[in-house]
Amino acid sequence: MVPTSYYILLSAALFTIGVLGVLIRRNAIVVFMAVELMLNAANLALVAYARERLSIDGQVLVFFVITVAAAEVAVGLALLVAIFRTKRTTDVDEVSTLRG
């Protein structure tokens, strides 16, 4: 039986990769993927703990997280299309007229 701590270490690794993905990559779509990665890392941790505690609650929570992630990406991509239509770019840094 794989000890829970391995799962948690994996989810922590996934989470940090997701965070770095958001910080480093310039393409909006890749940023969305990185955010998805972070959320799935959380799901992994939830499932791992649920298994360890043999309580169904953890797994139920995963569904909530998945639905929310889906909604977010949907709106995100819609926005991306809108921006692409006007500015012909998906680069996050291009979009920086508001400052100061």
């Binding site: 958001v22 972070m38 959320l39 941790a45």
Partner: peptide, 12 residues
């Protein structure tokens, strides 16, 4: 979304 990620991980 970025902050939500942290939030959920915290809940976990």
């Amino acid at each position: 979304a970025f902050a939500a990620g942290f939030f959920v991980y915290g809940i976990a």
